[in-house]
Nucleic acid binder design. Sequence first.
DNA 1: GTACTGTTTTGAGTTACTCAAAACAACGGT
DNA 2: ACCGTTGTTTTGAGTAACTCAAAACAGTAC
Lengths: 156, 156
Amino acid sequence: MPPHTHADAHAVDTAARLRAAGLRVTDSRRAVVEALGERPHASAEELFAVVAQTVPGTSLQSVYNALGDFVDAGLARRIEPAGRPGLFELRVDDNHHHLICSSCGAVEDVDCVVGAAPCLTPSDAHGYAVQVAEVTFWGVCPACSADRAAAVPAAS
Amino acid sequence: MPPHTHADAHAVDTAARLRAAGLRVTDSRRAVVEALGERPHASAEELFAVVAQTVPGTSLQSVYNALGDFVDAGLARRIEPAGRPGLFELRVDDNHHHLICSSCGAVEDVDCVVGAAPCLTPSDAHGYAVQVAEVTFWGVCPACSADRAAAVPAAS
DNA sequence: GTACTGTTTTGAGTTACTCAAAACAACGGT
DNA sequence: ACCGTTGTTTTGAGTAACTCAAAACAGTAC
């Protein structure tokens, strides 16, 4: 067998990314990065549930530590939609926005038309040095729209 | 003395507003509305501190109740900037945005150029029925900029 | 004034974290 | 291959910002 089988490819990338960010490579960190890759916009608890499958000893606190370190290192970004726990994503290199279902909480990325932050400027900056414009779109996702139509059918 | 002195004017308005919203008029609710009028973008705790001065018996829970009822009745709006407790405001009739100091947390209202919600639409709505676009500008306020300049003076 | 019903109080419970100390493990050097 | 350093994880406690619920209380219509 060759030294690196195809299955290792991801793990190798992940390790390199962690090292490049100045972080030591540990099983739990690798697992958190990979879980985040598969589920963007996951909460710490959700990631912990995934990570606990592959790295049994991991604690929730470690997941919080890892996520905090990733954010500090610029490897991950944290968003905090109103009324929900913090969510994490690996997409950090562009200025994109979010579209959130106010019914089920599903989160979609929305490309920023402008690209660079701040993509908008306030009508009156009040003397502030504005760094970013955070845009969150709230709506109802297709699945929830369908559920509602089924639950409250239009009078015929 | 006339039946209503000048000092009552506010109280009368407030009572009418509460009644119009279908809420009973109580001392604590009146105090919360008035405190909110003086400090837009205050948290429940901050409002409690103010209200406790004028209506000594009031509990923090009552302030939460009142604010929740106001939001449900459309009398107040709740915003939840990342990393901060929920803040409340009485300005509900227009679609405006917020500019927040990432250093001290000061909040300013920013008029929406468009006016009606949603003032922006996502580049790709992913099939969602978008109701609102929430925009939060993050920057450094003049006071904090000045503090920084003083703390870290440019090399001369 | 009385009844009805909404409001407030009190107190417990929850979520989503943060903080800190001690045990442990990655990695560079030898 | 081992060792030491220093970063990481674990364990456990602690906190902020709430929510929930039952009983006491108080507006409001009559």
